[in-house]
Nucleic acid binder design. Structure first.
Length: 883
RNA sequence: GGGCCCUUAGCUCAGUUGGUUAGAGCGCUACCUUGACAUGGUAGAGGUCAGAGAUUCGAAUUCUCUAGGGCCCACCA
């Protein structure tokens, strides 16, 4: 075969070549002839985003699963897509336009601005999909979908209208989280709380018509302009007599009622609470209970408005400072205390979130959440690892209605219209031309758009053509829905998983997928989140360029157990790269012996030697493990299983054991061994392919130009390849050889120095085996002569020895080494083994152990004890022979 | 304030229903440029499984508490 194979594996060009080939050959297309389907949707990344390690992990997991299922004969479909990511994308484009043209979106107008975002999307939207291709993602691009495509839009309008007509979607004036930078409402889930070192300001409010003052503690004095009441706990003996009286708000001198409300904590602050229904969630509730006026003191951009006269036009921080100085002037700021508290910040903008009262669209999720909760409790939808159920439950148990509307332009526009003629309000699935009530054409659409997660929530449906029946037929909706599973990060359980499950249950009465596998977050070596500000991010694309995609994927898989994430050390990637190189060189080694040929290689199981039976057994055990681990989403176990087979079994032993044959004279033997090597190599490539697709496809092509490994059948456990006896013998032989090497090393023999060895055993099979395979000892342990004796024979004097439970191995040293050092080495060994033996003895002496432990365990321990005793005896004999 | 999770070799992590002599990779040490591979080979050192207690014949594994770390939720002015 090829003689000019590169010495080192160079992944660069190979990867591009194979991805292209797979696309050309439609390798990613579902095989509609297959019996069972396996479908997953890709969590759609932001269309103008960039791949980060989280994506790389997420998609590697998915690709491993899909490739495994594809090779296992499933009708596989992995649907790629991208998300319009309303807020993020709009903000990005806004920024860019302002930077380049000094224009705001209002300068451009809605239509023009949207046009610009679409242009931006066309221009940069491909980057992320190209990066997915670099990662080797074997998704079916024919199904590629964008959340703002026609079908998802149809789905959105249909669902919105349905829920609107059912009364589940409603408009309400309530207090919501307002992002002053984005100038939009955001949902509870998009708010993060950060601990801020703030201050408690103690302010005196006068009680009307008396000299009494109320000391009120607040962290936000500037909101006093929006106060509608002062509240105390009705049980508070200090203040309850004041309930019903009035208080005077300082600076603006407005008179407000003093009310009693049990929400007020007597212990906290001063026990007196200023009530600002327009700018605090609790106060809003208090206000509702007491019918208080809602005063808005903020403009949409977060500056104070005309209701806060003394500080109008300032932002909250400035307003706070000015209010404080005004209060100081009035000498009613009586105390300032340091106070740590949680302050709401926008997830996207990172600006302080202002609670304001505004009219928004809400979705009543109470019932949907209950259904969804049940589906998990009944096991229709499973979280893997299971502990994530708790996170899911904690949210679903007490769901808050979902604020759907966003004051943005980029997104699915709310399909609600108001008739200017008759004021009729209605939601409509398609674009309406007239008011259904009065037929007037003067209808106006709600200006707001929907929360991005609304369309994401419909993703399992809309990617399969729903609700367009023709398209559903075309996309084989019934075959692929519900999806088999979902892979995503735990950080979007609420945002996404919960919403998809609620929507799907509501609309189709089925869960969207059976399993939800949640991987951890990829962190840096020190366990910190990768972030731009820390500069500790590892760019997956750069890493792929440096080490190769297969190495990166292997590293990610290897680190992806059922934990809460893992810390990615670039050194780990390096070692995966080395592993790929190892495979490459193993291939390079066998390549001269194999012929490129089409067709499956059947191994001839007749007349094969013990090492071959051993490796075949190992192979089929590995196949079994791989299938199990991948079915269990144990990517880490799968990666280490295949690693161990390739490295420790195949390369370290079987190839070494094959060398004497391949370099020998016997042409038939060479031919035979070559065939087996080829078979083994093909199988290990298949086993590895889901994790590291490129190198395996590349090597496969040297074996077989006609077919692709991507569509080969994945190996499974094969009973005909299991040779238990030979496997055991070989394992024992490996142990003996390791012992010899160990002895050589500890005695200080030069690696090339040939030695003679004497074995002592009464085990017939073993003695025959050792005799017949003594030639291996030469190549593997530099043994020039190996003689097998019976245990009754005399041991050689002045030798070093090692023993297994079956065979003692002696190396006569003939004054080559320091005997005393050797004696102490053996003594050390004896004491170690004796310690183990004692442990076992004590266990066996204990009558309770024999009574309680299962028989097989007792037997096992007995056997262990027996073997240890044999070892001790042998070692002691060796010591005795030293003198 | 509630909830979840973590603590195993210098580092990153496995260890599934309690039955091991507690594993892997990296790193480290010694020796080796033997015709697949120095992105390599062979061998080795290194752990009282965070601590205390309980259950058990037997605990890294189950329970309780303590210490340290992480995450999520929550309106604490």
């Amino acid at each position: 075969m090829e003689t000019n194979i590169e010495k080192n594996y160079e992944p660069k060009n190979i990867e591009k070549k194979w991805y292209k080939t797979w696309l050309e050959k439609k390798s990613f297309a579902p095989d509609m002839k297959a019996q069972e389907s396996f479908s997953i949707i890709m969590p759609p990344p932001n269309v103008t985003g960039k791949l980060h390690m989280g994506h790389a992990l997420d998609n590697t997991c998915q690709d491993i699963l899909i490739r495994h299922k594809r090779m296992s004969g499933f009708c596989t479909l992995w649907i790629p897509g991208t998300d319009h990511a309303g807020i993020a994308t709009q903000a990005k484009v806004e920024k860019k336009i302002f930077k380049e043209e000094k224009k705001t979106k209002h300068d451009l107008g809605r239509d023009e601005f949207l046009k610009r975002i679409w242009e931006w999307k066309e221009q940069y939207g491909e980057e992320i999909t190209n990066q997915l291709k670099t990662l080797g993602a074997s998704c079916y691009w024919d199904y590629e979908c964008f959340t703002m495509d026609e079908t998802p839009n149809k789905a959105v309008r249909k669902v919105f209208t349905q829920l609107y007509n059912e009364g589940l979607i409603y408009k309400d004036k309530r207090i919501i989280n307002w992002d002053t930078v984005l100038q939009s409402a955001i949902s509870d889930a998009e708010v993060e709380y950060k601990e801020i070192n703030g201050k408690f300001y103690h302010i005196h409010y006068k009680v009307e018509g008396s000299d009494e003052v109320l000391e009120i503690a607040t962290t936000r004095p500037e909101t006093l302009f929006g106060d509608s009441a002062v509240a105390v706990n009705p049980k508070d003996p200090r203040f309850k007599k004041l309930i019903g009286k009035k208080a005077i708000i300082p600076i603006c001198n407005r008179v407000v009622p003093i009310i009693g409300d049990s929400h007020v904590d007597m212990e906290l602050g001063t026990g007196c609470l200023k009530v600002t229904p327009g700018h605090d969630f609790n106060d809003f509730e208090i206000g509702k209970r007491h019918n208080l006026e809602v005063i808005n003191i903020l403009n949409p951009d977060g500056t104070l408005n005309e209701n806060a006269k003394a500080v109008e036009g300032l932002n909250c921080n400035e307003g706070r400072k000015k209010t404080i100085s005004l209060l100081e002037e009035l000498e009613i700021l009586v105390d300032t205390k340091k106070h740590k508290h949680q302050v709401a910040h926008g997830e996207r903008s990172d600006s302080v979130i202002e609670p304001i009262v505004s009219t928004q669209w809400f979705l009543n999720v109470q019932d949907m959440a209950k259904q969804s909760l049940q589906s998990v409790k009944k096991g229709k939808m499973n979280f893997v690892p299971k502990q994530w159920e708790n996170t899911f439950f904690s949210w679903m148990n007490e769901p808050r209605d979902w604020c759907l509307s966003r004051q943005l332009w980029w997104g699915h526009r709310i399909p609600v219209y108001t008739c200017n003629a008759c004021e009729h309000e209605f939601s409509f699935e398609s674009e309406p031309s007239e008011c259904p009530k009065c037929q007037s054409h003067k209808i106006e659409q709600d200006p707001d758009v929907l929360d991005t997660w609304f369309s994401s929530g419909l993703w399992p449906l809309s990617t399969l053509g729903w609700p367009n029946e023709e398209e559903m037929e075309k996309k084989k909706f019934t075959t692929f829905y519900p999806n088999s599973m979902l892979v995503t990060g735990y950080d979007i359980i609420f945002f996404w998983v919960a919403r998809m499950s609620m929507m799907s249950l509501k609309l189709t009465k089925t869960v969207p997928f059976k399993d939800v596998y949640l991987h951890g977050l990829v962190r840096d070596k020190e366990g910190r989140k990768m972030s731009k500000s820390l500069g500790n991010g590892i760019d997956p694309i750069e890493t792929i360029e440096k080490y190769g995609c297969d190495a990166v994927r292997f590293t990610l898989a290897n680190g992806c157990g059922h934990n809460r994430g893992f810390n990615l050390d670039p050194q780990l990637i390096e070692s995966s790269r080395n592993f790929m190189n190892k495979i490459w060189n193993a291939f390079r080694f066998i390549s001269p012996f194999i012929k490129r040929k089409v067709g499956n290689y059947k191994v001839d199981l007749k007349n094969i030697d013990t090492p071959t039976k051993w490796i075949l057994t190992e192979l089929t055990y590995t196949s079994e493990k791989m299938n199990k681990h991948l079915d269990d989403y144990r990517f880490d176990e799968a990666a280490s299983s295949v690693y161990s087979f390739v490295y420790d079994k195949f390369c370290s032993w079987y190839l070494e054991l094959s060398k004497p044959i391949l370099y020998g004279e016997d042409q038939d033997a060479i031919k035979k061994r070559s065939k087996i090597l080829r078979y083994l190599f093909e199988e290990l490539l298949k086993l590895l392919h889901p994790i590291s697709p490129f190198i395996t496809e590349e090597i496969w092509s040297y074996f077989d130009q006609e077919s692709l490994i991507i569509s080969q059948k994945y190996p499974t456990r094969d009973e005909s390849l299991i040779f238990s006896d030979e496997h055991e013998q070989m394992s024992h032989f490996i142990e003996v050889i390791t012992q010899i090497r160990n002895m050589r090393s500890s005695v200080g023999l030069k690696p090339k120095e040939k030695i003679e060895i004497q074995f002592f055993t009464n085990h017939k099979k073993t003695s025959t085996f050792l005799y017949e395979n003594r030639h291996y000892l030469e190549s593997l342990a530099q043994v020039s002569k190996g003689v097998v004796y019976s245990k009754e024979d005399e041991r050689p004097k002045k030798s070093t020895m090692a023993t297994t439970s079956i065979v003692e191995t002696y190396i006569p040293l003939e004054g080559l080494i320091d005997i005393n050092a050797e004696i102490s080495r053996i003594e050390k060994q004896i004491s170690k083994v004796k310690k183990d033996y004692e442990k076992v003895e004590n266990k066996l002496k204990n009558p309770k152990f024999a009574d309680n432990a299962p028989d097989e365990v007792v037997e096992e321990v007995k056997l262990k004890g027996k073997n240890l005793k044999i070892k001790i005896d042998a070692l002691e004999k060796n010591i005795a022979s030293m003198n």
